[in-house]
């Protein structure tokens, strides 16, 4: 019962943060709203039993990636850029139609009765977490079944770091 109430509180926080991000004029306000959304999502991950991913969400997303965005906003001096950049008229209608359609299709896909889901309050995952710990439950499949993908990810991050330096540097 308490979990459901907390779920609703954090879901409302996430949705309000997302709307604040889309509608805020100031890029810094937009970014801080997105951080609020990420914290709400991290809390929902805890309620869903994904403790390690929740920690990663706070550290990597709300910490590292958002600081990178904030750093770029400060670097380009956009923090006092208050003029509204919302598109008007036909774009607003198009955006509402596109997001409404996608949201409706996803909603229908979720609500379809062929998808038999448990209530989510009890799951075999919880027992696994009790036995192996929150990190071990991720680490075992990550390093056993997905070790090649893990190594390729390290190459991807190296390529991204080199690419970012090459793109942002004035003269290589």
């Amino acid at each position: 019962m308490i979990r459901e109430i907390l779920w609703w509180i954090f879901a409302a926080e996430a949705v309000l943060g997302a709307l604040g991000m889309v509608l805020s004029r100031n890029p810094v306000g937009s970014l801080l709203s997105l951080v609020v959304t990420f914290f709400g999502l991290a809390a929902i991950y805890v309620l869903l039993g994904a403790f390690f991913i929740s920690a990663i969400q706070v550290i990597v997303y709300a910490g590292a990636i958002m600081v990178l965005f904030l750093f770029v906003i400060m670097l380009l001096n956009l923090g006092h850029d208050y003029h509204a950049d919302l598109r008007r008229g036909v774009w607003l209608v198009l955006g509402g139609l596109a997001s409404g359609l996608i949201g409706f299709v996803l909603y229908r896909a979720v609500r379809t009765p062929s998808l038999e889901l448990p209530s989510g309050l009890t799951s075999p995952l919880d027992e696994l977490v009790q036995r192996q710990g929150a990190v071990g439950v991720i680490a075992a499949p990550l390093f056993r079944d997905f070790s090649v993908a893990f190594e390729v990810t390290s190459v991807l991050l190296l390529v991204a770091a080199i690419g970012a330096v090459v793109l942002a540097k004035r003269r290589v």
Partner: peptide, 24 residues
């Protein structure tokens, strides 16, 4: 709670699409 989480994911995705279309 599980189905509701999927609905929340759909709502957040739709808000993201809206933002991509209407912001410049």
């Amino acid at each position: 709670m599980l189905t509701l989480s999927l609905v929340l994911a759909a709502i957040l995705f739709a808000i993201g699409v809206l933002g991509v279309v209407i912001r410049r």
